[in-house]
Amino acid sequence: MSRVGTFLKQYWMFVALGFLLVYPLIWRAPYYHVLGFNTLIVATAATGWNILGGYTGYKSLGHSTFFGINAYLVAITANELGWNPLWSAPLLALGVTVVALVLGWIMARAKGSAFVIATIAMLLIFRLLALNVKSVTGGAPGLSQPLAPWSPEYSRMPFYYYMLFWLVIALLVSAYIRRSRFGLGLLAIRDDEGKANMVGVNTTLSKVLAFGVSAYFIALGGGIWSYAQTHIAPIFAFSILNDVDTVLATMLGGLGTLWGPVLGAFILIPGSDYILFNFGASQFHLAVFGVLMVVIILFLPRGILPSLRDRLAARRETSSAFTGASTMEDLSDSQPRGEVPGREAPAP
């Protein structure tokens, strides 16, 4: 193992963060900042979604409800009260989280497929409300809000760095939850809800909290997106395609892992930008996207990171030359279903 390799293995997180910090300075055209920003929104949303979908096993296809609600709240408060979205987005997202907790509490009764359809129905209801309550939302044409005051060449950079900051927060929260007693409860619910209940996990409370936490990071992204976009309309703010991006990013990277959702977003968003650019002359890119999705689900059902881990584990079994603690293991600290998640989980 070369020295560079060892260094990367130990400090890759900081290398990655450093790269993300200097990225906008190297690629200076605002387009790259927009692409980065879009990617970070999905990475943050996916990290949040993963707490419910990955750790707890409840896969929502309607969480962009909260994206849309906060997008509207931020736009309305900016227009009516002059609130600056940079601080109002995270603040209002807390309010949205309260809404999510209530909805989560109602939906905690639904399981499996019923839960998935219920989340879709929730999204459709809120989209229709946004279309209908015209006095508040402006109806189908949507709402405009003031432009960010920064000069054009740099106007996208603050959004990028701001979202990067929130991605780091989301990851810290996700990592903390994963190692906490609460997180253990979530994993237990995923593996067998009935059993989790029996060993004393308050499953309803845990599910509702997971629902709320995941909603927070998605709502946050919606609020900041609203400011960056300056104009929002119901069909784009409450779009199931936002959910699909989030869910796909998570599954591609590794469902239930800490880093998988981020890795997935960094592959998916620039990748689909590229597919759209090159196959976009017709609707063929949808087919390309669909087939890729099928292939990924068929061949990488657990995502890239867990599969990589399996691969490495298999190699380690065959070759004894591979020694030492592997950081790859930390990269993809997912527990296969049914396994007791005991290794690195001291009770707080």
Binding site: W27, Y32, I267, L268, P270, G271, F277, V295, I296, I304
Partner: peptide, 29 residues
């Protein structure tokens, strides 16, 4: 399965790089 999966991932990663930092390629395409 692994071969196919690897191919797909490589294809996506390659695509991502292509659109991320190589303006000449995109402009030409």
């Amino acid at each position: 399965r692994w071969l196919v999966a690897l191919f797909v991932v490589l294809a996506i990663v390659g695509a991502a790089c292509g659109s991320g930092d190589d303006t000449t390629t995109t402009a030409a395409g």
